[in-house]
Design a protein around this nucleic acid. Structure first.
Lengths: 152, 152
DNA sequence: CCATAAATGAAACAAAATTGCAAATTCACC
DNA sequence: GGTGAATTTGCAATTTTGTTTCATTTATGG
């Protein structure tokens, strides 16, 4: 992985519909060379996914919540089970397994607070291993991206 | 926005390189019709961005942190200023303006803890309006996406 | 310094996206 | 329910983009 690759990645993580011709011109490489590098990086998994980012509000999910989850037991199989229930929930955008007082931090989207309240029953109250959870309501999503700082 | 649009979005937010022909076959519409709908939704901003998601680890940003920031003053201009400094920082992946005890929640990536420590000086210690902050270290990123639940 | 391997650019090729147009569908109004 | 306008559709032609081929160049190891 050289600096050409990194420059390509910098462009793709901003806009992955950029034509390879344009990328080539920008970084000084032929379209074919760009094509081969992109293909390789997809195969190697450096490029994990290619997705469209949608507007949450228009699609009926205007509420964002940040939830800190505290578990009862730190037994590995119990943790795994709980983890699975979080990850498989489509409302859960992100799930972090964390150190400190709490065990998980979740980023969740919901149609409404009532909708979220319903979700907490499934996700937390129904789970014996969840001791307690603390919800923080996002009034505004000021930045939302997965852009990684890439140093050449 | 009808159920065709929603089906298209469901596909694109998983993989935006899916050929329009495939999308058309799946949902029962001609490639041209799909193309026009996608174009419209891009123009309307329902599709906000099209990006590649990269592997953080390979690109030298293996550390993820969740930070709760408590401000000194709730004055709107001071908040805005602080917000700007967070949003413009490339290590900050997400910035939420929140209710409750704290004022902001940030998701931050870093090369190392030492790197993060350096970042805290710029971002928090250098800012007079930051009263205190609480850092939670992510041991594992179990789920990381921006997939919105779309109901037809 | 040579031989080998890897990466490149140019051109041909294939696949996908985009556009023009006539037919079909939907919608608002009577 | 019927009628006309507006919208949306599918098909086919066109254009753009992505992919492969191949000869050449550049880098690598002995």
């Amino acid at each position: 992985m050289d600096s050409f690759d990194k420059e390509i990645l910098k462009i793709l993580q901003k806009n992955n519909l950029t034509p390879q011709r344009d990328i080539g011109e920008t970084i000084g490489l032929s379209p074919a060379a760009v094509q081969r590098r992109v293909k390789r990086m997809r195969e190697e998994g450096i490029i994990k996914h290619d997705i469209s980012i949608l507007e949450r509000e228009t699609l009926g999910n205007p509420v964002t919540l940040i939830v800190e989850v505290f578990l009862e037991s730190e037994q590995i199989d119990l943790i795994d089970e709980t983890k699975k229930s979080f990850v498989s929930c489509s409302a859960v955008q992100q799930c972090y397994y964390v150190t400190g007082e709490s065990d998980f931090v979740l980023i969740i989207v919901a149609k409404s607070m009532a909708d979220y309240e319903k979700l907490t029953r499934e996700l937390f109250f129904a789970n014996k291993n969840v001791k307690r959870f603390r919800t923080v309501v996002a009034m505004g999503v000021e930045k939302l991206g997965l852009n990684i700082p890439i140093t050449l």
